[in-house]
């Protein structure tokens, strides 16, 4: 069996003003082919105005097993949200 083409992750901006969003992945030999394939596979109905492709091996991802250590410290920090601070009713525009 010959070598398999690498996997690329595809991100599409649906219209200007919005972020690129991950839509899926595909196989391609290089970035040019990845962009061409992304156009055929993920934008057959005007789903986007811009495409990013990134070879999957270049993405570093956090480990779900470490989620508690990474994300729990934010749980008890209500003081980072505006609703934590009591404002008198008569104070406007704040």
């Amino acid at each position: 069996m010959s070598k398999e083409w690498p996997i690329w992750e595809v991100f599409i901006r649906s219209k200007n003003g919005l972020d690129h969003r991950h839509v899926g992945s595909l196989h391609a030999t290089d970035s040019t082919m990845a962009l061409e394939n992304a156009r055929d596979v993920y934008t057959r109905r005007q789903e986007g105005v811009s495409i990013w492709v990134v070879e999957s091996i270049n993405i570093a991802a956090s480990n779900p097993d470490n989620s508690d250590a990474l994300f729990d410290p934010a749980i008890d920090k209500a003081y980072r949200h505006p609703t934590f601070y009591k404002m008198p009713k008569e104070v406007k525009h704040i």
Partner: peptide
């Protein structure tokens, strides 16, 4: 085609 594309890349 698959092989040629890899070699080309």
């Amino acid at each position: 085609v698959r092989e040629a594309a890899i070699v080309y890349a």
